[in-house]
Amino acid sequence: MSGRGGISGVKRPRPGSNGSKELTADEHNVYNLIKSKGDMGIWKGDIRKELNITNAKTIDNCVKSLLLKQMIKEVPNVQAKGKKRLMAMEFEPSKELTGGVWYHEGMLDEDLIDNLKRVCLQRLSKQKVATADGMRHEIKMTGVFQVDFTVEQMKDILDNLVLEKQISRVKSNGMGELASFPINAECYKLKSQRAKVGDFSMIPCGVCPRINHCAPDGVISPVTCVYYTKWLEF
C-alpha cells in the first residue's frame, strides 16, 4: 500500500497500461494529503487550504482525475451532509464519519432501530425483567436479525426505550421478580402502565405553538382561538 504513493520514479507510460498511476505533481500532492488523513478523509475545501493552492479549479481537476483512476473515493459524512469526504481507496471510513453501527450510507438506520426496539419490548412483555446481555442473547435466539449485536449496542437500544419512558432501569436487589439476577445488576423492566398524559397537555393551550402570541385582547385570544373552537365542537 505504501508503494502506491511512491510513483516519482515512473518516467513514462508503459505501453498498454491504463495510465491509472500517472499523476501530475498536483495530483500527487493531493493524493498524498488525502492518504495521510487515513480513515477520516478530508473535505475538498480543506485540501485547498492545506496545500495553499489558490485556484479551486486545479483541485477539482485533481480530484476528478483521482476519482477516475479509482485511487480515492467519496465518503458521506454524517456530521455535515454537504461536505463529502475524500478518502484513499484502501481505507474504510471511521465511526465518526459513518455514525457507527446505527448509520447506513450516512443515514440513521431507523428501520433497524425501530425493529430492534419492537423486539426488545416484545421480549420484555413476556419476561418482565432482563439485563442487556440477556436481551442480546434472546434476540440472537430469535434469529430475526442477520447481525450479532454487542452488549453495548443492546444497552444503546434499551437506554433509548428508557428515554421514551417505555421501560425503566432498575438495580437488582435480589428480591421478588429480580431474585434471579445478581445484586446490583443493571436490569430493564417494562413499565406496568402507559405514561401519564400531562394535565396541561390535555387542553389546547398545553400543545399550542402560539401560546406566546396569545393574549386576552390580542389577535390570538381564547375567544377567537381556532384550536379551542375545534376542541369544543360537540
Partner: peptide, 21 residues
C-alpha cells in the same frame, strides 16, 4: 413529568428523548 409531557406533545418524540437526556 409534566414538563416532559408538554415537550412530547409540542415538539414530538425526538425532542422528548433529547429533553430527557
Amino acid at each position: 413529568e409534566e414538563v416532559e409531557c408538554i415537550v412530547k406533545k409540542r415538539y414530538g418524540i425526538e425532542a422528548f428523548r433529547i429533553f430527557r437526556s
